[in-house]
Each structure stands twice: as C-alpha cells, then as structure tokens.
C-alpha cells in the first residue's frame, strides 16, 4: 500500500498509535500556547533530536519541510517586513516544529495500524449511528478505487485522443465520471448479492 511510513523498530515505532496521536495533539497545542522564541527554538531542537531516536535521518526530517519551503519564505518575508525579524523567526520556526512533530507520527506509524486504531475508536460513536463495519468497507474501497480511477482516466484519454479531444476537460471527465459511477453500481450490486450485512 502506498504509505509515508518509514520502517523501523525504535521505541517510537513500537508505541501504540493512539498514544502517539494524543501526544502529538498535546505537543501541538503547547506549541501554540507558547509565545516565546527561546522555548520554540528548544522545542524544535527537541523534536529534531527525536528523529535519530526514531531511526530517522535528518535528511528525512528536511524532506518533511521541503514542500512548504516556498510558503515559509513568503511568510518570513511578510512578517519580517511588517513585524520585525524576531516574530518572523518565531512564526516560521513554530510552523516547522509543528510539521516535524506531526510527521514524526506519520513516519513511525503504518497507515494500516492507524486505520485500525481509528475504526476501533469508532465503536464509541456507535450510539450516534456510526457503523464501524461500513466505515472500514468504505476505507478499503476508497484505497482500491484510486488506481482504478487513474486507469479509467488513461483509457478515456486515449480514446479521446483518436478523436482529437484529449485536451478537452469535459470530453475526458464526463465519460470518466459515467464509467466510474457504473463501476460503483456494479460493485455495490456485487456486495449486496453476496449477502453482505453490517
């Protein structure tokens, strides 16, 4: 399965996903309540120190930040111009710390484990009408549909190419949507005809 997980056997890998998620939410809240730059610097360094402990490299840590680099530069420039360099450093560092902390959970937990934890947690929502079995059916169907939809798009695009229409958004998207809905109807009939009850 496609996943951002990085395999390992560290303490952070072995912690139960629920504990990690709660710790992350607590840490993120504390980062927001804190207004001082030195504490934010210390927190960022502390979070970075957890990366080697979790058998992750600093290169992996940087890879988490890289997609947001443009936004960081933009924010830094705007804050520096309007409010001074200290606030600019604080804001960007806090953002980086937040993302590094959250990525730590993502990198050390398999998506499948996290999904299991979430569906187990859904038991508590049963009284308000949530059906955990249907949720896990929806999750596995969605994950299976993604490559199928990509395949349908390729096929429709090829078909429209022969008509010179491959650049028309509507001419590609419309047949694709109809085929996808047809497929969904067939799948739900197939599930029902096998006597699926939940």
């Amino acid at each position: 399965m496609l996943d951002l997980y990085s395999p390992g056997s560290s303490l952070l890998h072995r912690l139960p996903p629920a504990a990690k998620m709660l710790a992350m939410l607590l840490g993120a809240t504390l980062l927001f309540l804190n207004e001082s730059l030195p504490i934010t610097v210390a927190a960022t360094l502390g979070i970075l120190a957890l990366y080697p402990i979790a058998q992750l490299t600093l290169k992996q840590a940087f890879a988490q930040i890289r997609p947001l680099l443009i936004i960081f530069v933009l924010f830094f420039a705007v804050q520096w111009y309007f409010s001074g360099i200290e606030l600019a450093t604080y804001v960007v560092l806090r953002l980086a710390a937040l993302i590094l902390l959250a990525s730590l959970v993502t990198l050390t937990t398999k998506s499948s484990d996290m999904i299991d934890t979430m569906t187990r947690g859904l038991r508590y929502l049963q009284p308000i009408g949530v059906n955990p079995a249907k949720v896990s059916l929806a999750i596995s169907l969605a994950l299976r549909f993604i490559p199928v939809l990509a395949q349908i798009t390729r096929e429709v695009r090829e078909a429209q190419k022969t008509r010179g229409l491959e650049r028309s958004v509507i001419a590609v998207a419309m047949p694709m949507a109809i085929r996808a809905i047809k497929m969904a109807d067939e799948i739900s009939d197939a599930i029902d005809s096998r006597g699926y009850r939940s």
């Binding site: 929806a138 169907l141 549909f145 969904a184 739900s188």
Partner: peptide, 18 residues
C-alpha cells in the same frame, strides 16, 4: 445507509485523491 451509499462515498473520496 445502503451499500450503494457506502460505495459512492468511497468512490468520491477516491476521486478527490485521483
């Protein structure tokens, strides 16, 4: 919710991902 509803929900979640 019927099975069809569940499948449609999954389909549009997957569509957003695709």
């Amino acid at each position: 919710m019927t099975t069809k509803d569940t499948v449609y929900i999954a389909l549009f979640a997957a569509l957003t991902a695709a």
